[in-house]
Computed example of a mutant assay.
Amino acid sequence: MHPHHPLRLVERDHHYGDRACNICRDLIEGLSYRCELCGFDVHPICTQLPETLNHILHQFVLKN
């Protein structure tokens, strides 16, 4: 999800202000992985999501 720089597990820090997960866009309330170099933030659970997803509705949309 972020191969360019290392990610570090951090606790929510008010120093950074309100941050949103770069994957799901929800606010980060507790732990997250953070790239200090570019400000990339991600919930630990969001790191378990697949990079691509095939859904039956995608096929329907493509046919119409």
Rank of each mutant, 00 (worst) to 15 (best):
H2Q: 11
V10H: 03
L37G: 02
E11D: 15
G30W: 02
I45S: 14
E36D: 14
L37C: 05
V61Y: 05
E29T: 14
F40K: 01
D41E: 05
G30D: 15
E36V: 10
F60I: 08
C38M: 02
R8C: 06
C24V: 05
V10A: 04
E29W: 04
V10R: 13
V61C: 03
H58G: 15
H58Y: 12
H43I: 01
E51L: 12
L31G: 07
V10W: 03
C38I: 05
K63W: 00
L57A: 11
G30R: 13
L62D: 12
L27N: 10
P3F: 07
P3G: 15
E51Y: 08
G17K: 02
D41N: 08
L49S: 05
H58L: 15
L49A: 11
H55Q: 13
D41R: 00
T47N: 01
C46H: 03
P3E: 09
E29P: 00
L49G: 01
E51D: 11
E36H: 11
H2W: 11
P50C: 02
L9C: 06
E51R: 12
H2L: 09
T47E: 03
H2M: 09
C46L: 07
N64F: 02
D41W: 02
Y33F: 15
S32A: 15
H14K: 13
N64G: 14
H58P: 01
I56S: 11
S32D: 06
P6F: 08
P44C: 09
E11H: 10
L9V: 02
P3W: 06
H58E: 15
Q48Y: 10
D18Q: 15
D41T: 00
E36I: 09
C38L: 03
V42R: 00
T52R: 10
L9N: 06
L7Y: 07
L49W: 06
L27Y: 13
L31T: 06
R8P: 00
H14W: 10
P3T: 05
Q48R: 14
H15W: 05
Y33L: 15
F60S: 03
T52Q: 09
M1Q: 10
P44E: 10
G30N: 15
R34M: 10
N22L: 02
A20Q: 12
P6W: 07
D41G: 00
H55P: 01
R34Q: 13
